[in-house]
Design a protein around this nucleic acid. Structure first.
Lengths: 224, 224
DNA sequence: CGCGCCATGTCATGAACGTGTAATAGCTTC
DNA sequence: GAAGCTATTACACGTTCATGACATGGCGCG
């Protein structure tokens, strides 16, 4: 299907994803550090690079920048749950998309496909979930064809949640990765933001379809 | 469709673009250095040359001049983001158009087509967005038929933004790629330039149609 | 050599908007 | 029915952006 270069230092994740992607008919090469990845990319004409953020030596952002400096290869970033990674950082480094670990293979593959379609110029650089459309390049969101304007925090929250559909994020995790807050303390801030977001993107805010509450845990982006 | 000679030393970019262009029914030959490119051009009757700026040995500008010295083959320049590439310099060397890397295949193909049309004498070397017309060859901009004079920085900003319509650029990114500044620090410089640009190209500067603010993120070239 | 124009970068001000907090109401579960 | 969790709304503060004035510096022209 596609030629994938996986840059990931954790051998477990590496093996798991390699296996999963190969099982879906992709050709996979892997590297364990940024340096090795860049070197390997020079020989392996990858269609897409799957890049972990936390790497020994030069980090993912830097690797991303260096790849971008020379090639147009698509890049999907992998971010660990605790990393304070957000949309702006990824955008600036030049990533095409990002996924939050733990990542399920089918989600990763969907992202790879989306990214490749985009790179091929198919006029669907958007992700569509039901009546909701997300365009990570132009940072626009539309519902049922009509564009909805989202303030920065709501947009970041939505992009973060939708980066891993189905995965549950606790309020604390969201505070860290979306808000970049580091204090521990309970706050209804996330709730408030979720409400405002729902009011704009849900057809029936009272029965949310996209941003779902997982009672006792946090929120999740659906539909799976 | 067309016969393309690609001169590019980075194997990744070369392979990626070769593949993409072949997929669009172009005949593609490639070379890894300026010397090889010139030699190959003598045998391969290319309609258009896609030329990387940073090459081992003689650089892209020089290659461009030498091609121009003997043939009228169209030339599209490829420039990496970090290169201190000046639009004016490129066009003075005789390039017909230029694209900033990372380049998406569809963008490159659009440029190739435009360049070829131009070479065929079709008078449509301009991109039109609503009432705004950009001519990357003559570096002129006109609004509603009347030409507007843009100072260098404003022109570069506009060309950069419009090279990827819809894509959101942060102020930091713009400082790096348009101004070639490398310091980190917040500056309202971009804002000011956007402001002056809007005053010249927007019909209603207070409700910008072409250079849009994305609050909390940066700017984007519309129209959506 | 000196003058003046124009482009560029910096700064101050004000307005618009988004955000966080808190208070209250509603719902779920045991 | 009570306790715990979540939804909803209102309001005030802070941030961000637009706007225009000002200083600097380069360039051409006299």
């Amino acid at each position: 299907m596609a030629r994938v270069l996986l840059i990931e230092d954790d051998p477990n994740v590496r093996d798991a994803l390699t296996l999963a992607l190969k099982g879906r008919d992709h050709e996979v090469e892997s590297a364990t550090s940024g340096e090795e990845g860049l070197e390997r990319l020079a020989r392996f004409a990858a269609d897409v690079v799957v890049l972990d953020l936390m790497l020994p030596g030069i980090d993912g952002f830097e690797v991303c920048r260096r790849i971008r400096a020379t090639t147009s290869t698509s890049i999907v970033m992998l971010s660990a749950r605790g990393d304070d990674f957000d949309v702006v950082g990824g955008l600036e480094a030049g990533a095409d998309d990002y996924v939050v670990k733990p990542v399920r293979p089918q989600v990763l593959e969907a992202r790879i496909r989306a990214v490749l379609r985009r790179a091929d110029g198919v006029p669907s650089p958007v992700e569509t979930y039901g009546t909701l459309c997300l365009d990570r390049a132009s940072l626009t969101v539309s519902r049922g064809g009509r564009q909805v304007a989202l303030p920065p925090m709501e947009l970041r929250l939505l992009l973060h949640l939708s980066a891993s559909p189905g995965q549950v994020f606790s309020r604390q995790q969201l505070l860290e990765s979306v808000w970049e807050h580091d204090y521990l303390g309970d706050s209804r801030l996330v709730d408030a933001c979720v409400q405002r977001l729902r009011a704009k993107i849900e057809d029936v805010p009272a029965e949310p379809r996209y941003v779902q509450t997982v009672r006792g845990f946090g929120y999740r982006f659906g539909p799976v």
